[in-house]
Design a protein around this nucleic acid. Structure first.
Lengths: 290, 290
DNA sequence: TGGGTTATGTTTACGTCATACACTGTTACG
DNA sequence: CGTAACAGTGTATGACGTAAACATAACCCA
């Protein structure tokens, strides 16, 4: 029963991805992110080197780009757990092992899919509106990108290999502060603080984005997360949290109001803006002092 | 061959964890983090409810705390991928299935291990040194905690269930700004911006911490990451990055200098401090304006 | 035009993982 | 002492990543 027609796509799954509705199985990241210095280097290598163009064998039916696009489609439709070799292969109508002709292992495929999914950074806003408006523009775009592809945020935020798009986002940021007179070290640190804030403070909205993508209404989601937090209320160990949560504000809210007390809790976007403005103020102060 | 003595630990592995030296297999988080509103609620439930104390059967040889402690030991010794039911069980000298008497599934065990691993937040610094020093203290402690247990940072940063320790860290933060006169909304947003910055900007040092925990010297690590970034040099698509990287600063550096050009690149701790001061400046400015 | 060579996709198999199920033995209440 | 509830075990199942072997297809050179 070995290899019948071969080199002919099987069209197994029927075309579309298996969808992997299997719900969640694992609770956590499964790591595997390489940290040996050699590993980091090897992983990046694959993001940059062009595939060797062979001339002898049969023509490849796919390209790396095809596989990456399929992987992104699968992850978009499900989540990071749905991104299996089987799912990607059947999305394309091939067997899982076919993918190994394009990527040496799953890690390499995911690395490539991640970089491709980052996409290009936003174009600079019209005329020169100043660094502040430009950083804001960049930060919103980054946040929107993560919300649009919540599975990217499922990746551990430890250093991943830096692909072309990853570098583009950083490059785009640096352009926003190119004319501020900052030293190279300062520029990198400004990048780090803004990038860090955007990344680190987006978890809640990303969680919401994921939930809504699965049909949970924002109200249901807020209810669940709120109920979770409200466990702290009346717990003497958490007097501050308790006070804030019962004050009618400070709750986690989607765009619609939360079913807590009165008050006007901020939406998540408003909270993000608020924090971003603090960060920008801090940077502005530094610029003034120089 | 079914169940011979039963209810007697097997001491299978010999005592210590299998170590799971298998290196990395998966490149990425495997998600599984629950996002249905019901799931979030159910997961938190397990973090708070005390296990039902039965009275009829034989005494349980372990407690949830024992299992959690073993899980943390396993994760500490390896990484998040090493944290398998098999590894935890054999760390304790039991079969994998024994753990299911304590936790309904792996997700619940990991949730519990994560909260336990967060530990208690730091004590407030001596006398009242002002909110700024207190936030700094908190931020350093959080960062140190993440570096000490890099596997925590492998978890996707999307909202996880909020256990007792998680709430304690937040509670401790709120105490640092309790006397600043901020509104509840502002307090939550200050928390969010600092927490977001600390979390989001720690990826590099956590990556380094992981690498060094595995025997990679900081120099080797910096070399590898630097070489990765340096791919951008001379690439016309990244003029800004290129310029910064060749300027001899802005490179990613451990505590020791990087083998780039001259200049005095900041250490990662210095960069973290720098960014944190910007954030604090922004908050201070807001306080002044009120 | 026809072998040799090499790359392609498939089949099969294996090891790891989480975990369902059935089982044996244990405990303490009635 | 019986019996019901529970502890830990063995086995099995299905998903996953991927190694190895294979059958085919395209190209090269003769």
């Amino acid at each position: 029963m070995a290899g019948r027609p071969a080199a002919k796509p099987r069209k197994s799954g029927g075309g579309k991805a298996t969808k992997q509705t299997k719900a969640e199985s694992l609770p956590a990241a499964s790591s595997g992110v390489a940290f040996d210095s050699a590993d980091i280097a090897r992983r990046s290598e694959l993001l940059w080197e062009a595939p060797a163009k062979p001339t002898r064998g049969p023509k490849a039916a796919l390209t790396r780009e095809d596989v990456v696009a399929a992987a992104i489609r699968v992850a978009d439709a499900g989540d990071l757990a749905a991104l299996t070799m089987h799912a990607v292969a059947s999305e394309l109508g091939y067997t899982p092992m076919a993918l190994y002709r394009y990527f040496p292992n799953k890690e390499a495929l995911v690395d490539a899919a991640v970089d491709a999914a980052l996409g290009r950074p936003p174009a600079r806003p019209g005329p020169h509106e100043g660094w502040r408006a430009e950083i804001r523009h960049w930060a919103y775009a980054k946040r929107a990108m993560l919300c649009a592809r919540p599975w990217l945020a499922e990746l551990p935020f430890v250093a991943a290999p830096h692909g072309p798009n990853w570098l583009s986002w950083h490059e785009a940021f640096l352009r926003t502060i190119a004319h501020t007179g900052l030293s190279p070290e300062d520029m990198m640190d400004v990048l780090s603080v803004v990038h860090g804030y955007v990344h680190g403070s987006s978890d809640t909205i990303i969680s919401l984005a994921r939930a809504t993508a699965r049909g949970v209404t924002p109200e249901q989601w807020a209810q669940a997360v709120g109920a979770d937090l409200c466990r702290a209320i009346n717990d003497p160990r958490y007097p501050m949290l308790s006070g804030i949560l019962t004050s009618g504000s400070g709750g986690i809210t989607p765009d619609s109001p939360l079913p807590t007390k009165q008050g006007k809790p901020r939406t998540m976007d408003e909270s993000f803006d608020w924090g971003l403005e603090r960060v920008l103020d801090g940077i502005a102060l530094y610029l003034e002092r120089k």
